[in-house]
């Protein structure tokens, strides 16, 4: 058994301190150690984007990082988007525009969109299309996902 390493990090506003094996993937740490099961594993080689989370506000693929690399970071996962019963405007927009079907890639889509809309609050449709192109969805054909991102941009601008 490999030696365990101590890490400190903040996930969805909650401080966490613990020990992990150095080889443990960040996504496995989130799912197994923190029981944050909303982050999904789709490919384990950084292509499908389902496991995308925010690390210090930036979208990263949690299957391509080790948990120890997140030491000292602030993370947001899908569980951290809504405020209690109040959905985030991006979640509202996906609900309104049918931006999800099976929901498996959805956490990655939402957090990717979140980072994108922070950087580009008034995107064109083509920009939104490009922004989500790193997340594979086999259900929607993407049209309604793009509709959702555009609608979310509109709502967030007016807030």
């Amino acid at each position: 058994m490999a030696q365990r390493q101590r890490i400190n990090l903040k996930v969805n506003g909650v401080e966490y301190e613990g020990e992990v094996e150095p080889r443990k993937l960040l996504v496995d740490f989130l799912r197994e150690d923190l029981e944050l099961l909303g982050t999904h594993v789709g490919c384990e080689h950084g292509v499908c984007g389902a496991c995308t989370i925010l690390l210090n506000g930036k979208a990263v693929r949690s299957c391509l990082m080790l948990a120890v690399q997140a030491d000292g970071a602030e993370l947001t996962t899908i569980e951290g988007l809504a405020q209690g019963a109040q959905l985030h405007p991006i979640q509202e927009a996906f609900h309104e525009h049918h931006g999800l079907q099976c929901g498996f890639c959805t956490p990655g889509m939402l957090l990717t969109s979140h980072e994108f809309l922070q950087e580009n609050p008034s995107p064109t449709r083509e920009e939104a299309k490009k922004a989500i192109s790193g997340v594979l969805c086999r259900c929607t054909g993407y049209k309604q996902v793009i509709d959702s991102v555009m609608a979310a941009a509109e709502t967030m601008k007016n807030e």
Partner: peptide, 21 residues
């Protein structure tokens, strides 16, 4: 009519086999 399923899937509360412990 908007989907009922969304209200668990959007917040990371879907129940997939890998979520079973």
């Amino acid at each position: 009519y908007k989907r009922k399923e969304d209200l668990r899937l959007l917040i990371g509360e879907g129940k997939f086999v890998d979520d079973i412990q």
